[in-house]
Nucleic acid binder design. Structure first.
Lengths: 225, 225
DNA sequence: CCAATATAAAAGTATTACTATTATAAAATG
DNA sequence: CATTTTATAATAGTAATACTTTTATATTGG
C-alpha cells in the first residue's frame, strides 16, 4: 500500500529550520541520517561535523538547513509528535465509544509502531528511541520560552490538547484533564527510559506493562465508582 | 532551633566528587554558589570558569572537587533527594494510618519546603528550582548506565523504593507500585515545569493544584471502589 | 619550624560550535 | 544554449569551552 504520510507533509513550523529539509535530497539525507547518528551517539556527542562526514557532505551545508543541533532535535521531535497526532486522529476516528477511543489513543502513545512504512519514510523505531532518550532536553533549557513563542512545540501541545478532549469526553466532571494528559504523554517516555536504565525501578520489563499501567490508571481515575 | 541536617551529613556517594566538598570552606562555597549560579544561568551556560570568578577562586581549584559540571549537578541532585528522603522518613514516622502517611509523603514531594533552615544550610528553594529545571539532564545521557553502576543515583532510587513501600502498605494488591512511584516523583517535577513554561497545558497555576492532582490520582488508583 | 597539603594564577591544548570565503556544480531562466 | 542564480563542497578561521599542566603561594598540622 502507498504511504500516506510520505505524500502528506507534516507542517512542523518554519522556525525550526532555515531551509526546508523536505525540499531537497540533501535535506532529506540530513533528516534520515541524523536519526541514525543521534540515536547512536546521543545528542551531546552528535554534531554537524560528524553528520557531514557520515552523509559525505559538508558541515557548512548542514548549517544552511538548521541553526544548530538542538533546532534539529526540535524538528525531529515535531516530526515524531506529528506522526503520533496523525495516527491519533485517523486511527481513533471511527471509534464511537469514548472510553474505547481513549484507550486506543493510549495504545498509540505507548506501543511500538507497527506497519512502520505506512506512516513515514524515516526509521520510526529509531526516531522513537531518540524521543525517549532526548526529547526532554529539547525543551529543558533557558530558551524554552522563546522557542515556545516561536511555535516550536505547537504540534506537541496540540497533541496533548487532543488527548485532553478525549479525557473530557470520558468524564466531563474530571478536574485535571490537562495535568493528566501531560502526565501520560511524558510518563510513557519516562517509563520506557526507566525500564531500560533503572531496572530495579521497573515492575515488569515488557512493552505491555507500560500500556497496562496507563490503562489501569486512566480507568480508575476517570471512572471512579 | 538548631539545624538537624547541617550536623547530620548526607552521604551522597563518593563517586560524585573527587574531594569531599563538605570537608572545606572552598568546597562548601562551591556548593552554595553553584546553586545560585546554575539556577541563574542553567546548566548549559554554567561553567567552572564562571563559578571560579563568582566565588573569587580559581577554575582549577574547583576541578579538584568535581570532575565536571554534570557530576556537580548529580551531586546537587543527590543532596536534594537526600533531604527529601530524610524528611520523608522523619515526618511520616509517627503517622499510623497508611493512607495518611502516603498523602503526607506526597505533600513533602510536591509542596514548597517551609522552615527551610531546619533541613539544610543551602538555599533549598533555589536547589528545588534546579531540580525542576535540570534534574532530567543529570541522567538522560549516554553514560547513564556507568553513572548508575557507580551508585550516583542511589539516593534517588532508594527514595522511590520507600514510596513503593508506602504504596504497597495502602494497597498490597496493586500491580504497578514501582511504575506509580516513579511516575509520581518525576511527574511532580514535570507538572511544575509545565506550569511555568507551557501555561496552556496547565489546569490551574497553583502549588496546591499539583498536590491535589496527585492526591486525587493516588486515592482513586489505590482505593478503587 | 618544617613538611605536607590546599589553593591561586597563568598558560596551554583539544574540541566544539559556529562563520566566512572561495570554488565548483547544478538548476532555473530568458 | 548561454547566463545567471542558487546549492553544495572544501577550506580555513574564530571564539568559547572543557579541561590539564605547571608553577607559585598560602595554610595547616606535626
Amino acid at each position: 500500500m502507498e504511504s500516506l504520510l510520505s505524500s502528506i507533509k507534516i507542517n512542523v513550523g518554519s522556525h525550526l529550520y532555515i531551509k526546508d529539509p523536505e525540499s531537497s535530497d540533501l535535506g532529506q539525507n540530513i533528516i534520515s541520517h541524523s536519526i541514525e547518528l543521534i540515536n547512536e551517539l546521543g545528542i551531546e556527542k552528535f554534531n554537524f561535523n560528524k553528520l557531514g562526514k557520515y552523509i559525505q557532505s559538508n558541515e557548512s551545508s548542514i548549517y544552511r538547513y538548521f541553526e544548530n543541533k538542538y533546532k534539529l532535535l526540535q524538528y525531529l521531535s515535531a516530526m515524531y509528535w506529528g506522526i503520533i497526532e496523525y495516527r491519533l486522529v485517523i486511527e481513533t476516528n471511527a471509534i464511537e465509544d469514548n472510553n474505547t477511543k481513549l484507550l486506543k489513543a493510549i495504545k498509540i502513545l505507548t506501543l511500538e509502531p507497527k506497519n512502520i512504512d505506512s506512516y513515514s519514510d524515516y526509521n520510526q523505531l529509531k526516531l522513537r528511541d531518540i524521543i525517549i532518550d532526548e526529547f526532554t532536553k529539547s525543551y529543558h533549557h533557558k530558551d524554552v520560552d522563546n522557542d515556545n513563542d516561536e511555535g516550536n512545540f505547537k504540534i506537541y501541545k496540540r497533541l496533548i490538547l487532543r488527548l485532553v478532549e478525549m479525557i473530557k469526553n470520558v468524564n466531563p466532571e474530571y478536574k485535571y484533564p490537562k495535568a493528566l494528559s501531560c502526565h501520560i504523554v511524558e510518563g510513557v517516555l519516562q517509563q520506557y527510559y526507566i525500564q531500560r536504565h533503572f531496572k530495579s525501578l521497573s515492575d515488569h520489563k515488557t512493552e505491555n506493562q507500560v500500556y497496562n499501567f496507563f490503562e489501569d490508571t486512566i480507568t480508575k481515575v476517570l471512572n471512579p465508582k
